[in-house]
Design a protein around this nucleic acid. Structure first.
Lengths: 225, 225
DNA sequence: ATATCTTTGTGTACACTATACACAATATGG
DNA sequence: CCATATTGTGTATAGTGTACACAAAGATAT
């Protein structure tokens, strides 16, 4: 059998959250195929870099984002998924805090933009499928891993967390029960700082305590919403 | 940037179950690197076949197994994982019923053998890491998807299912509660057949009803152990 | 400064689910 | 027919999930 080589690319579905809205970072393609169409940022893997390195490099080059959390999603390998020929893509999910950096468009991207996940544009290649897979993963994962905090500021009012979950899960949450459950997990530190946004009682700030989470995980205590 | 191509392979961690023992199918490598050492079966992806097709082809060629269930596990892409140079591997998990076919060794394999998962030999490449990832996936997944049935005969006594779960989860299960829970999910058909193995009261046979499972899944009812 | 509005923060009662637990039924083997 | 092995079954209790309403603290308008 002849040994074959295949073009291998990495794509990253990058989610951000601000004020009750979940967004995805997309680029407008500068070159063919799909020139002028929106796509998930990504690119080809170089011979001497790991997949994760490739993702971070491509994101940095094309969009300027600072990734806060990155996990492998799925590898898409259908034969006809790219008109240029055989391309297999390892897709990743990234979580970022959009307010900690400024995005820009460069290299293969003529534009970079945040899109609300319920108002997505038409996408290139099989990127719609990848994006939907990523959304499903995110929705599933926040219920059993504390990755929601990666989308929030390090210090956040409890209501931000609640709003994030209602948004992501697409259903209302009982405030008292949610608070009881999360605080019962013992992974949040309540700070002595308050913050008030507009009217209403000022909120206490909380902080995710990763060390405590790892301890609990070792003891077999599972995070679950 | 120069567009690069990379050797892409697929590997399949194939699990089988018989009489209270979970096994993994491994091959002994016929050629270098790691000639004579045990490895997870797999091989390079051809240009005109999907990843799943490649997995099934390689398994058929090397070992003769008939795959009953196949799912993508993870893609391993470290730069130095193969001494021949850059090779990225998409790993799969396969479940089979070992008593429905005969394994044989061919092409790259000089031997094929079932190994109990707690008595594994030393493995080639980063295959130990892949295998451990696969075991973790299997253990996690049987608690929220009804994939355990893919390892059993189509008709099975309830005790087989129970033994499978105790083995995989590595802890005892209360028979009455387990039965209550599983039967309460309403995905098993109780047949009018009995089977007796050796001494003891003969057991009723059950059968997994996939249609009913899909119906319930649509209605949002989740399988959970 | 007072009333009104907005958001945060808190406890309890009830339903449901998980868990612990023991003995009868039905076969086989001496 | 007696001992042994395996299947099959119900109930009581603890624990968890869920539903639900009002006070506290600040901002805004009159």
């Amino acid at each position: 059998m002849v040994e074959q080589k295949i073009r291998l690319s990495v794509d990253a579905v990058v989610f951000g959250y601000e004020e009750g809205v979940i967004s995805v970072l997309l680029i407008k393609r500068k070159y063919d195929p799909f020139k002028g169409k929106w796509a998930i940022p990504g690119g080809f893997v170089l011979n001497n870099e790991s997949l994760e390195t490739a993702v971070e490099r491509e994101l940095q080059e094309e969009t300027g984002v600072k990734i806060n959390y990155l996990e492998q999603l799925y590898t898409f390998g259908d034969v006809e998924r790219d008109p240029r020929g055989r391309v297999v893509t390892v897709a990743y999910v990234g979580l970022v805090r959009p307010n900690t950096f400024k995005i820009f468009a460069a290299t293969d991207a003529s534009q970079v933009q945040w899109f609300t996940i319920d108002k997505l544009p038409e996408l290139s290649f099989d990127h719609q499928k990848i994006l939907l897979t990523a959304i499903a993963r995110l929705q599933a994962k926040i219920t059993y891993e504390p990755i929601g905090f990666e989308l929030l500021d390090t210090k956040f009012p409890f209501s931000d967390l609640e709003k994030l979950y209602t948004t992501l899960l697409g259903r209302p949450i009982d405030r008292r029960n949610f608070r009881k459950k999360i605080l019962g997990l013992n992974v949040l530190d309540e700070l002595d700082e308050k913050v008030s946004k507009g009217s209403g009682r000022p909120a206490n700030l909380f902080q995710f305590n990763q060390k405590r989470y790892f301890q609990l995980k070792k003891e077999g205590i599972i995070f679950e919403i």
